[in-house]
Simulated scan of single mutants.
Amino acid sequence: MDVLSLIGIVLGLVAILGGAVAKGSSLGALWNLAAFLIVVIGTLGATLIQARTAVFVHALRIFPWVFRPPRLEMEEMIERIVEWSQISRKEGLLGLENLSDEEPDPFIRKGLQLLVDGAEPQALRQILEADLDNRELFDLQGAKVFESMGIYSPTLGIIGAVMGLMAVMQNLADPAKLGQGIAAAFVATIYGVGMANLFFLPVSNKLKGVVQARVNFQTMLLEGLISIAEGENPRNIENKLSGFVQGG
């Protein structure tokens, strides 16, 4: 569980709601159905126009990473790679076949199977790097869905404010409605800018960070598998891969 994400959301809400109260406003003044429809539904509509179905669905699928990022135990993975290296030196690459069949992670399973099949180190690198690059691209596209929402929502907030002011101008003859109407008009701006800067953009950046951490983890795994294919000494493999832990 990523506690910082939870703390960030709570602090964001406290900043907006507490700030409104401190400024002498009421919490009820922050609710406006028309502004909500314009900003939220409008932002969703603009995003759906931009994103492919597969990318949008993937964005929803990886959203939980903000609170529960994938478990990436670098040191534990290095120990496993060293163990695979020792097995391959004692029993040959075919000794990894049972481990390959039992491996739940598709990327690891594919790499081990390529080793068992006797793939050359260069071919191993090309195949796994293609998988790695495609996965990274797809994950980043999912993260950018929230970035797009963060770009569209402030603009929709401005549109909502303008539409609210237009309604106010139609009631200039009734001064009693002016103050309430103007306040309601600017609620849309609060929705748009607030959601962009306190939710959509932070979520996008958090997901991008998680994606980069996964790429670093799988790159380390890739280098370890290639080292096994090249027959490197297990101790040398461990020393080589330890740099990824320091960099991660």
Rank of each mutant, 00 (worst) to 15 (best):
D105I: 13
I159N: 10
A185T: 08
D105P: 08
Q170L: 06
G181E: 11
E120C: 13
G118C: 03
M169D: 05
L140V: 06
E147G: 15
G160P: 11
Q122W: 11
Y152F: 06
Q113K: 09
G118I: 03
M163W: 05
L132C: 00
P175A: 12
E103C: 11
L114S: 05
G164F: 03
D101G: 08
I127H: 04
V187G: 13
R109F: 14
G179S: 12
A161N: 09
L99K: 04
S153F: 03
S148V: 13
V116K: 05
I127S: 01
A184W: 15
I151N: 08
R109T: 14
Q170I: 02
F138I: 10
Q126D: 09
L165K: 00
N98D: 09
F146G: 00
A184I: 14
P106Q: 05
I127T: 00
G157A: 00
E136D: 07
S148D: 13
G118F: 03
K144A: 13
F146Q: 01
N98I: 06
V162T: 07
M169Q: 06
D117K: 07
N134C: 05
G164L: 05
F146I: 03
N134E: 05
L165I: 15
D131F: 08
Q170E: 10
L140W: 11
L172F: 07
A173L: 04
V162W: 12
A185N: 08
S100E: 07
G150T: 02
D174V: 15
G142C: 01
Q180F: 14
Q113W: 11
A143F: 07
Q141W: 02
P104D: 04
Q180C: 09
G164R: 10
V116T: 01
K110M: 10
L115N: 03
E120H: 12
I151F: 06
K177H: 11
K144W: 10
I158A: 14
P106V: 03
A184Q: 15
P154K: 14
G142K: 02
N134K: 12
E97Y: 01
L96A: 06
I151D: 13
L137E: 12
R125Q: 14
K177F: 11
Q126S: 15
E97W: 01
I108T: 04
G150E: 04
D139V: 12
A143M: 08
L132V: 04
A176R: 14
S100G: 08
G95A: 05
R125T: 15
N171Y: 05
L96C: 00
P104S: 06
G164A: 03
A173Y: 09
G181I: 15
E97H: 04
L112C: 13
D133L: 02
P104W: 03
P104H: 04
K177S: 14
V145M: 01
A183E: 06
G142D: 02
E103K: 13
G150C: 00
G181M: 13
M149C: 10
A173E: 12
G164W: 07
E136G: 01
Y152Q: 00
M166A: 07
Q113M: 14
A143Y: 08
R135V: 03
S100K: 01
S100R: 01
V145H: 02
L112H: 10
I151A: 12
G160F: 11
L99T: 07
G150R: 00
K144G: 13
A173Q: 15
D133K: 04
L140R: 13
M166L: 10
R135F: 01
A173G: 12
G142Y: 00
E97I: 00
M169Y: 06
